[in-house]
Amino acid sequence: MAGWRMDDVITQEHILTMLYRQRDLNFVPGAEHLYSNSGYALLADLVSRFAGTLFSEFCQREIFDRISTSTTHVHDVHQRIVLNRAYSYDDVDNVYEIRVLSFANCGTTSLFTSVEDLATWMIHLQEQRASGDPALKRLTEREALNDEVENAYGFGLTAREWRGSDAIQHSGSDAGFRSHLLMIPEHGFGVAVLCSVPCGPQRLAFEVADHCLADHLDPAEEEKSNNQGHQSETQPDPLAEDVMSQYLGEYESQELQTRYWLLMKGGHLRVRHQRHRDMEMTCLGIDRFKGSQRFLNAIRFTRNNGQIDGFLADGGDRVRSLRFEKVEGRRENTTGEHA
């Protein structure tokens, strides 16, 4: 939403600087659970400050070297050459293309590893679990939300019941990379799936578990059909031209330090950013629009004394109601044509 692309070099400093500008919460703490990459970036920064060393160096010394992983490291220098490194790809119209990833940050991502090292890691976790290690217990500890509903996500790992056994797991994705780690401690079982293309690794991991543990698991529950027939969405009536014209102009987010231009093209409202393609917005009613891109999937205009003064933007499932203020007196180039 701030204009960053996946193939940009994004450093830890970039992320922390953006986080320090954030003003609002998505919800009251404890009201619900929402996965937070930002939280892990802050945790990595805290570890680095308390340890007095880089987060990557701390992990190498205190974790990876202690359990003898041979290839795992925190990749916080994007220029670093890595032996046998895999690159990520994606299928675009039946042609594979490279999906460049140049991250130089940690806590949220940038853990380079292999299936062999992940197997070593799972064996270590199994041994620690058997010994009653309180740290491991904390990782999978589930606490109730404010409404007393139990949260499935622990302090770093997801733990839930699956076919009569506890399943401990976590997924990861960046660019074209996909991964899933699944452990069934009761049966001494674990599987790691690493992909360099989007392929549904969680599904693959559970299919392997189904096959290997078929004689030890409770019968699988039949999937409940939710097919109630196709129900077409009711399309709202088009807004009048004088109403649509109120939305045009330039909008700025102080938190992201970025600007969007709203313009008309072919009778439709479009959103323009200098680093993205124009995005067509679908009208859902007065002052409400649905976006065509995941990072900007909804906007709701706000008014002051009847006049548009900005909008609130949602991105994916983790950004909610991010404030953009309308920049007064800036209406140039709102016809949809590039200057």
Rank of each mutant, 00 (worst) to 15 (best):
K290W: 05
L111M: 07
L182H: 04
D24C: 00
L213K: 08
V115F: 05
R49A: 04
V100A: 14
S173D: 11
E161Y: 04
L34E: 14
A192G: 08
T11W: 01
P29Y: 08
S110Q: 13
N94A: 12
G316R: 02
E143K: 14
T17F: 00
V327Q: 10
A31N: 00
S225R: 02
D76V: 13
N333M: 14
Q22F: 12
E328S: 13
H268A: 13
F58D: 06
L43V: 10
R23A: 04
V77K: 04
V95F: 10
A209T: 07
D166R: 14
T71H: 14
C283W: 05
G285R: 12
R294G: 08
S253A: 11
E148A: 12
A205S: 06
Y247G: 07
D309I: 06
S232F: 15
A86F: 09
L181A: 08
D65Q: 13
R80G: 00
H75Y: 11
L157W: 09
T109L: 08
L322M: 08
Y251I: 10
V115Q: 08
F155K: 14
E57S: 13
W4T: 10
G291L: 11
E186I: 06
C212F: 14
R163T: 07
L145S: 03
G39W: 00
L101V: 13
A152V: 07
L16Q: 03
S38C: 04
V92W: 09
T335F: 04
A205F: 02
T140S: 15
L19G: 11
D45V: 00
A175V: 02
H230N: 06
D7S: 15
E207W: 01
R323N: 01
G316V: 02
T108N: 15
I15R: 06
H230S: 04
R275F: 05
D117H: 10
Q126E: 12
E62W: 09
R277N: 05
C106G: 10
E143I: 15
Q126V: 00
I286F: 05
D242T: 11
D174G: 11
Q307S: 07
R163H: 04
D133L: 05
S292P: 00
P134F: 07
W162V: 01
D90M: 02
V82Y: 11
L139G: 07
D91S: 14
A144N: 09
V9E: 15
V100T: 15
L16G: 00
A209G: 03
H273Y: 01
N105V: 01
E207I: 03
F112P: 00
D237H: 09
F189E: 04
M244K: 15
T71D: 10
V92T: 11
S179H: 02
L204F: 01
Q307K: 09
H268P: 00
L43C: 03
E13T: 15
V197I: 12
D133Y: 05
S88R: 07
E332D: 09
Y153G: 01
F189Y: 13
F58E: 07
L19C: 13
G190E: 01
A44D: 03
